[in-house]
């Protein structure tokens, strides 16, 4: 079982992400509705993949990425950013903060599934 944390303040969006990744076998999903909740959950139990929205009510996705990369334990956690902000500046900031992939909404189910597959499988088991 691989644990996936899906962070987005929109429940529909979280459900869509989960539906997109569902075909990949052996994933277990946890939802977080805010950046703070994501940080809390990451500090309490281990995850194998983080799918993260950029724009959230309390603290943004970039701050979450920065926080995660500042922790030894989480330094190698694969992160997929999923956002409506498709501009180059956002992409550059997210990637330089330490995100592994950057996806702009709308994306297709296959696209995110392929990214998740890549990240989960390149990671030593």
């Amino acid at each position: 079982m691989s644990e996936v944390l899906v962070v987005d303040d929109s429940k529909v969006m979280r459900d869509m992400v989960v539906a997109c990744l569902r075909p990949y076998p052996g994933l277990n999903f946890t939802h977080a509705s805010s950046g703070l909740e994501a940080i809390e959950r990451l500090s309490l139990s281990p995850y194998d993949l983080l799918v993260l929205d950029l724009n959230m009510p309390d603290i943004g996705g970039i701050e979450v990425v920065e926080f995660v990369r500042g922790q030894d334990r989480l330094r190698t956690l694969p992160i997929i950013i999923v956002t409506t902000r498709g501009d180059e500046a956002s992409r550059a900031r997210a990637l330089s903060a330490g995100a592994n992939r950057f996806m702009t909404k709308p994306f297709t189910p296959d696209a995110i599934l392929a990214e998740a597959r890549g990240l989960l499988e390149e990671k030593p088991a």
């Binding site: 429940k11 529909v12 189910p109 296959d110």
Partner: peptide, 18 residues
Amino acid sequence: MTASVDLADFLPAYLAEV
């Protein structure tokens, strides 16, 4: 392997949230 996901399925939930 094809993903059997159709995001149009989320239309009702989408309408509710919007």
